[in-house]
Design a binder for these strands. Structure first.
Length: 158
DNA sequence: CGATTTTGACCCGCGC
DNA sequence: GCGCGGGTCAAAATCG
């Protein structure tokens, strides 16, 4: 009866596209006061699921672009099991849609002990949004930052 | 009213 | 062959 309703799942058996494997992992150090439901990084994201994995007892949140859900852009946010104040945001895909309100970029994230200029991070993000020409550098940089335990990434604090 | 969020259930892939 | 985990979608409820 209701089976036909659930049969429409996975309507796309295959995707003739390699999909942009630009997976950038950014460690965001935030305080319990800044743990908002939606992370404002310049774009709008819609939470579409929450699941807890064995790797981390903390629930992992899944976000999708609410402006262009058809774009291959996804965002995963997981909390560090060791540092509950550290949020690990994994950006999957690239941005191909215009900004909803670039002026609204005001992330209250507190970058304490940040060894990098917030402006640099913003430029790095813009690079991804504009073109993935430096995705290698971005990946390397992100990797370096991710490896730094004392690294706190602040997204556009201007 | 619209938009967004939350929870549950289901599905697929992979390993052994 | 079977089980588990992980991931996504749907619907409903709520808020501004």
């Amino acid at each position: 009866m209701i089976q036909k309703s659930i049969l429409k799942k996975h309507a796309s058996p295959k995707r003739p596209r390699e999909i942009t494997t630009n997976i950038s992992t950014v460690c965001i150090k935030t305080t319990s006061s800044d743990q908002t439901s939606v992370v404002k990084d310049g774009y709008h994201w819609r939470k579409y699921g929450q699941k807890v994995t064995r790797d981390n007892p903390s629930p992992r949140a899944y976000y999708k672009c609410s402006f262009a859900p058809t774009f291959p852009v996804k965002k995963k946010v997981q909390r560090s099991a060791k540092d509950p104040s550290v949020l690990v945001a994994t950006y999957e895909g690239e941005h191909n849609h215009p900004h909803p309100s670039q002026a609204e970029i005001k992330v209250p994230l507190v970058n304490q002990g940040v060894t990098i200029d917030p402006r640099y991070l913003k430029k790095f993000m813009e690079d991804i949004n504009t073109n993935s020409l430096q995705r290698d550098l971005v990946e390397q940089m992100t990797s370096s930052l991710t490896k730094n335990p004392s690294f706190a990434a602040a997204v556009a604090a201007a």
